[in-house]
Simulated assay, not measured.
Amino acid sequence: MTKVVTVTNQKGGTGKTTTSLIISYGLALRGSRVLLVDLDSQADASYSTLAQYDPFKTSLEVILGDVDIQEAIVTVPTDMLTHISLLPASANLATLDIQLTKRQMIDAQYNLSDALKEVKQDYDYIIIDTPPAISMALLNALTASDYVVIPTQADAYSLKGLGNLSNTIDAIKQRSNPELKTLGILIGRYDPRTKFTQAITGMLEDTSKQLHTKIFKTKLREAIAIKEAQGEQRNLFEYDPRSKAAKNATEFIDELLEDIAELNKTKQNGGYGND
């Protein structure tokens, strides 16, 4: 069964796109068929893949119902993998809320979920990169998803806003997606050598309880290889597969898959363990 994972945090600069790309390429490297959905008007995930696409056939047009999703999905070029596709973003995604209001669409938060039903059978995983704001793009992502991953950093500003995100996730669970589960908070640009980082990590542990979730054991450490790969528009696993950063990312994928398997097992046994 296809598993849909939204990567989100309403604060900017927390590594949402980096995390989305790591998950997508990491899963594809293991033979999974992956669809990366870009819902951020900055379109950084789309840019990073080097995929060619029609700027008028994007996730915006799919959510608005103007374009069939199969017409918008494109193949991601790579020398290494053959199982990644992309539903690209448009800069005009910033106008999504206004356009949905003008069209007076009922239950518009279901639009992406409905569109994905058409292609779910083609993929093992669908990974959704979201904008740094609570918007209709995010509500569409959460309504369509099985799981949420929240990337953050070990700094004081990253603590802000997680409470609002918690409220948004709870509202989605109550109204449009009761099966939604938060897999965990992923700390990126992590430097374990500083006492400040250790203190903030402890505070994030407390914050994670508000989201009925945990801090992932794996932290993505500060690494130049990640920035270099982004600069060359290449995925980390292809750019420097033997780097500490790639090993670190692989460990995160291992933990992610273990958690998903455990949640599926718990669901089959009649309940979830993180509520």
Rank of each mutant, 00 (worst) to 15 (best):
V5Y: 01
T6G: 12
T6H: 02
T8I: 00
K11A: 12
G12W: 04
K16H: 07
K16A: 07
T19R: 03
S20W: 01
L21W: 00
L27Q: 12
G31E: 07
L36I: 05
L39S: 08
L39P: 12
D40S: 09
S41I: 02
S41E: 05
A43R: 03
A43W: 00
D44C: 10
A45F: 04
Y47Q: 06
A51L: 04
L60S: 03
A72I: 06
I73L: 00
V74S: 11
T82D: 15
S85E: 07
L86A: 11
L86W: 03
L87I: 11
S90D: 06
N92L: 05
L93Y: 13
T95E: 08
T95M: 04
L96C: 09
D97H: 11
D97K: 04
L100K: 05
A108S: 15
N111E: 09
A115F: 13
K117S: 14
K120C: 07
Q121A: 14
D122P: 06
Y125S: 11
I126V: 14
I126W: 01
I128C: 10
S135I: 03
M136N: 15
A137C: 12
A137I: 01
L138Y: 11
L138D: 11
L138F: 06
A141V: 10
L142I: 04
A144M: 03
D146E: 09
Y147N: 10
V149M: 02
I150E: 05
P151K: 08
Q153E: 09
D155Q: 12
Y157N: 15
Y157A: 15
S158H: 12
S158V: 09
G161N: 12
L162K: 11
L162Y: 13
S166M: 02
S166C: 14
S166K: 12
Q174Y: 00
L180Y: 04
L180M: 02
T182C: 03
G184D: 02
I185E: 05
I185C: 04
G188M: 09
G188D: 01
Y190P: 03
D191T: 13
T194H: 12
F196D: 13
M203D: 14
S208K: 10
K209A: 15
Q210A: 05
F216N: 08
A223D: 07
A225N: 10
I226S: 07
I226H: 07
E228C: 00
Q230M: 01
G231E: 01
Q233K: 13
N235I: 01
F237M: 01
E238T: 11
K244E: 12
A246N: 10
N248S: 13
I253R: 06
D254V: 02
E255Y: 06
L256D: 06
D259V: 06
I260T: 08
I260E: 03
A261K: 15
L263P: 05
K265P: 04
K267T: 11
Q268W: 00
N269Q: 15
G271I: 07
Y272F: 11
